[in-house]
Amino acid sequence: MDTVIGYFSSLSLVGLLNRLPAGVSQGLIWGIMALGVYITFRILDVADLSVDGTFSTGGAVTVILIIGGTPPAIAVVAAFLCGLIAGTVTGLLHTRLGIPAILAGILTQYGLYSINLAIMGFKANTAVNADKYSLVVSGRNVTLAIITGFIFCTFVISILYWFFGTERGMSIRSTGCNPSMSKAQGININLNKVIGLALSNGLVALSGSLFAQYSGFADVNSGRGAIVIGLAAVIIGEVIGDAILGKRMNFALRMVFIVIGAIIYYMVYTLVLWLKMDSNMMKLFTAIIVAVSLAVPYLKETRKNSFHKAGKQSEGGNNDA
């Protein structure tokens, strides 16, 4: 009993409130990564696992460039470009060499581990000092980090909204939705898949770049499980968005809710840490959230349309007769 009381009295509400803004800023940064996952998972209908590698690539490239004297803003752009290249590799493995998309992503991710280490001179992590360099974003000033994160998210959502409304972007959406129709309408679906994967990984690397600056170091393991966090953000955002907006949901708002999903994820994460749970358990916790969220629509459908239900109503019919 004493331990229970001791546990609760050790939790300080002020402490939680102090930590929440940091959760928001991290959520905004990871929100960009979630938008990348959304492009592949929902628009292209491909589960792309390269993102675990490209997230770290974004961080590694950024930190090494900044230490080498490159202006941080340019380092962010460079990280985005490296992500584009990594995504293109996955895309080509899939479309040119016929490797299933999920496996192509795993191969890229696996290979990137060595590349990321090589970028950082075969060290598992590299620090970048926020005092020495004027970083784009830093965890030392959380308010500023939230503003910067907000600006980046707004910019990315605007660009994506525009891009997927163009002739090319629209054809990428149809490629993911119906490849046969797309080919019949003269759309090069292989090219579109590569473009989609490249864009997605570019955004993930951009997110990784901001995250490395935010945390003050690049880590070769920072992207581990990124795909699951991205999926969690997409699913949390969609569920909440659909619940609030229903039929008024559109493409732009969906992306906004995905970023909100990422923020909520990091708020929960902050809460879990505040409750003094082992943060290593967070991965299990996240996996369960994603598994449940993916299962719910399926289970709803099977409940509506099940043999069990058919059997029951049939018995009911006999009783009536």
Binding site: G165, T166, E167, R168, G169, G186
Partner: peptide, 8 residues
């Protein structure tokens, strides 16, 4: 025709 970066 080509798929351009023009509003659809």
């Amino acid at each position: 025709k080509s798929r351009r970066l023009k509003w659809g």
